[in-house]
Simulated assay, not measured.
Amino acid sequence: MIVIYGIKEHLNPIKAQLSDVIHSCMHSVLGLPEDKRAQRFIPLDADDFYYPEGRTAAYTVIEINMMQGRTVATKKALIKALFQQIELQVGILPIDIEITIKEQPAHCWGFRGMTGDEARDLKYNVNV
């Protein structure tokens, strides 16, 4: 699950493009299948979104929730790919992007009526 926050006037016009870029990075770095897109966009009023000094109104926060298992190198590669591809394809500078990866053990995930540690039919590998 990925949650993306930004000021609505800046986030809404680029949602589809940003979604594609994020999913492309998840696919290329983590090996997620093309049909495994779980994203939520939270467009905020400017007065509801405080961000650090030195950033612009394009400031965007990306929270990536995933099961534990990826290596440090893989997570760093994902973050760097996101910075690079979002700047290249969407035009948001890295200074205006904040990325957080939140990991939970597989038993803390629930989907399709089971917990993540019970799933034996995932079409991707978590331990990469």
Rank of each mutant, 00 (worst) to 15 (best):
Q84L: 10
P52M: 04
G91C: 06
D48P: 01
I86W: 00
Y59I: 00
T115W: 11
L18P: 10
E34N: 08
Q39D: 05
V21T: 14
K8A: 13
I86G: 05
K102M: 14
N65D: 14
E103N: 07
K80Q: 15
T60K: 03
V90Y: 04
D45I: 02
P43S: 01
T60Q: 07
R112G: 06
E9V: 02
N65V: 06
I22R: 05
Q68T: 15
L44F: 12
K102G: 00
I7T: 07
H23R: 07
D20A: 15
G113P: 14
V29A: 04
I4Y: 00
A38L: 12
M26C: 12
H10L: 01
K75Y: 01
P94L: 10
I42P: 07
G31L: 07
G69H: 11
K102F: 12
M114V: 14
E53G: 05
Y5L: 00
A106V: 05
I79T: 15
I97S: 04
I4F: 02
A57M: 02
H23G: 11
I64H: 00
R112E: 14
K102T: 15
I62W: 05
I99R: 03
A58L: 12
Y50F: 05
I64E: 04
Q85L: 10
I97C: 09
L18H: 00
I95Y: 06
G54T: 07
Y5V: 01
F41W: 08
I14N: 03
C108D: 08
G69N: 11
H107M: 07
G54F: 05
I101T: 11
E63H: 13
I92W: 01
D48K: 09
L78H: 03
P94G: 09
